[in-house]
Amino acid sequence: MDDAAAKAHLHGSLQQAREAVLWKLDGLGEYDARRPLTPTGTNLLGLLKHLAFVEAGYFADAFDRPMTEGPRWDDLGDDETADMWATADESRDELVATYRRTIAHADGTITELPLDAEGHVAHWPAERNPVTLHAMLVHVVAETQRHAGHVDIVRELIDGAAGRQPGNDNLAPGDADAWARHRGRVERAAREAAGRP
């Protein structure tokens, strides 16, 4: 696979994950889009906000291609979790627009630079710098796919909606009754295994 094909493959994988994250916000009200559903506060809008910061850091800042309108770590203050949740003053539309602007800027970096272009991630140790665009693409694809999985689970906890993308949920066939039976079977197996010596 040549560099152009490798870049296109990685970029396509990244775009699939981005679309999944955005899709999981469809049809939800403000509360459900931002409410915490794990002990660590994981929530849909916070994951999207975090991913905007990820792409700005790794595709803008790292390659000295600053965004004029984008998320900046310096704007978050002293709260080390500020990129993982939406304040009441941050509108959903504003955060989605920021993510889309960040994606567009990142796409420019990906398109314009060669895979061996060198950058620098300020918060990484010296032995991990400099970085290449190729390494950043792999890193951000992995991180975005990981968080797309989180988003999928959080959305399922909210209203039962599950699946990979519109028109291709990537789930085994079955209606609500079939999934309830499946869940019961899994629960019985877990209890049986837990009861063994």
Score class of each variant (00 low, 15 high):
His134Arg: 10
Val140Lys: 06
Val140His: 13
His134Lys: 07
Pro125Gly: 00
Ala117Met: 10
Leu113Arg: 15
Val138Asp: 01
Val131Tyr: 05
His123Glu: 13
Val131Gly: 08
Val138Asn: 07
Val141Met: 03
Glu143Ala: 01
Ala135Thr: 08
Val140Phe: 02
Leu115Pro: 06
Asp116Thr: 06
Ala135Trp: 05
Pro114Phe: 05
Leu133Ile: 02
His120Ala: 01
Gly119Met: 02
Ala135Phe: 07
Leu113Met: 14
Ala142Asp: 13
Gly119Gln: 07
Leu115Arg: 03
His123Pro: 15
Asp116Asn: 10
Val131His: 03
His139Cys: 06
Leu113His: 04
Asn129Ser: 08
His120Ser: 09
His123Lys: 09
Thr132Met: 06
Val140Ala: 02
His134Cys: 05
Met136His: 05
Trp124Ser: 05
Val131Trp: 00
Ala117Asp: 02
Trp124Met: 08
Asp116Ile: 01
Val140Asp: 04
Val140Met: 10
Arg128Phe: 15
Leu115Tyr: 00
Ala126Asn: 04
Val121Ser: 00
Glu118His: 09
Pro114Gln: 06
Ala126Tyr: 10
Gly119Glu: 02
Ala122Gly: 06
Glu143Asp: 12
Pro130Val: 07
Leu115Trp: 00
Leu115Asn: 07
Met136Ala: 14
Gly119Phe: 14
Ala142His: 12
Pro125Tyr: 05
Pro130Met: 07
Val138Arg: 04
Val131Ala: 09
Leu113Glu: 13
His134Ile: 05
His134Pro: 03
Pro130Gln: 11
Pro125Leu: 08
Asp116Glu: 07
His123Gly: 10
Val138Cys: 03
Leu137Tyr: 15
Val138Ile: 13
Leu115Thr: 08
Pro125Lys: 12
His134Leu: 13
Gly119Arg: 01
Leu137Ala: 06
Ala122Val: 08
Glu118Gly: 02
Val140Trp: 03
Val140Tyr: 07
Thr132Trp: 01
Glu118Val: 13
Leu137Phe: 11
Met136Trp: 12
Ala122Ile: 10
Val131Pro: 14
Val138Phe: 04
Met136Ser: 08
Gly119His: 12
Trp124Leu: 11
Ala117Ser: 10
Ala122Gln: 04
Leu113Ser: 09
Ala142Val: 15
His120Gly: 11
Leu133Glu: 10
Val141Gln: 05
Pro125Asn: 13
Leu133Arg: 00
His123Leu: 02
Leu137His: 07
Val140Ser: 09
Leu115Ile: 08
Leu137Pro: 01
Thr132Gly: 14
Val141Trp: 00
Ala122His: 11
Glu127Thr: 12
Val121Glu: 05
